[in-house]
Design a protein around this nucleic acid. Sequence first.
RNA 1: GGCGACGUACCCAAGUGGCUAAGGGGGAGGUCUGCAAAACCUUUAUUCAGCGGUUCGAAUCCGCUCGUCGCCUCCA
Length: 477
Amino acid sequence: MSGEKEDFVPITPGKVNMYVCGITAYDVCHLGHARSAVVFDIIKRYLRYRGYDVTHVRNITDIDDKIIARAAQEKTSTEEVAGKYTEEYYRDMELLGVSRADIEPNATDHIKEMIDTIEGLVDKGYAYAVDGDVYFEVNKFSEYGKLSKKNPDDLVAGTRVDVDERKRSPLDFALWKASKEGEPSWESPWGKGRPGWHIECTAMSSKYLGESFDIHGGGADLIFPHHENEIAQSEALTGKPFVRYWLHNGFITVDKEKMSKSLGNFFTIKEILGKYEPEVVRYFLLSAHYRSPIEFSDVHLNEAELSIDRYYTTVMRINDFIETAGAAEKLTASAELEELLSSFKDKFHNAMNDDFNTASALGFIFELIREVNRFLDSGPSGQKAKDLVIQTSELLSEIGGALNIFNKSPKQWYSLLMKVKKIDLSEIELQEKIDERQRARETKDWATADKIRNELAGKGIILEDKKDGTTWKIRAG
RNA sequence: GGCGACGUACCCAAGUGGCUAAGGGGGAGGUCUGCAAAACCUUUAUUCAGCGGUUCGAAUCCGCUCGUCGCCUCCA
């Protein structure tokens, strides 16, 4: 609310109530929706990892003008439209490693709660009914604009929306809309109609999280008017502060412009996942601070893929060492790794505690990656060395687990890359090629060995010759 | 027009008052290797859009200028 970072103090110690605006289920989701979901998934996971008891509510708007329009266009019902795109949404989110919210309320399951809320506002004089519509009277709520830092007078002056003569002010917004012939409708004290958009979040958040709760999130484009209106409705009704901390994620941009339906410059999650592993998309979304804009492009996704590949390449090396390390005690150049191992969690926590700075946190992960590589390069062996590497491996898993990233085995990663890059060679065929090349190498038939290697390289497969065999990976980037 | 955010290397991106300006990608050179790949090492911003100011000290605070974007209409 201050527009600045503040220390996080939940209403109830150890407990976090968090409400995040989900989607309006009228079409498939694009990368912008993914960002919001991933960002708040990370926030929830990190809070839980730090021991908070988090209750996460994420709503689905399943009745609104666009859904009605879509249903008319597809000659079906709004329930079908909303149901279909809600399912698509969950499918996309699951692929991206976004966990389900604890409570996922639909607007249409809470009509009664919304009507009660609206009646409360009418009773208190904050809302008025006209011809079956009910509007919230913005002038009655003196703090209107406090979140978006807008002055209602300026807004009226610059209003671009068609002025509805029946409203007392152009800023007044609908709590309840009278339904037209043939539209879905519910009975209400004002006649048949349906809820306005903003009221569902007020009614459902207070039902599940209470009148005041800790965190409310959503895309930056929801700040005004959606979240501003939620504050007005909620605080007018309860007289209590609605939300402690507002968190808004920045936009995905394409050529520096906001990715959006109306501009038509959007890429659906499905399209993107046809070319990239979901983990790449997740990493990409975490590679910048959640409030900053992120420019979408193949170049950036390829860079994300390379970063993840560096991670898994190192994990492969770590696992290799743990399995094959010699018995002779030889600890070389371990000081730096040990030091980083002992300070790593603090560094990671500090980064994440500072407004969920995932970009910085990822930086520390790659510092650890470099340090363990350096250590392995120094040719250690023995139990102590092994223990250090195991400790590194466990630390990486723990942190990856907290963020739900880097959670595969290197083998899985390369198998998935093979699929997403559509390499037309089975792993069995590949192994045969490698064996064939190995026989050539044993007779020092370098020409044949190199020919096979080049052939595979042409398909995007990279071979690594090691002491005790050859491993393969898929070229990233 | 009103309000707000941002501008860090070739690209992406942390850093918001004080040690060598994280990390990833890319480039150059090297170590290792049959050759590679991977990894590691060295190097690639004496400087943080520009100009002023505050301070012992600023990328970081303040002011102005330039540029980019967003919100003010549905939007993640």
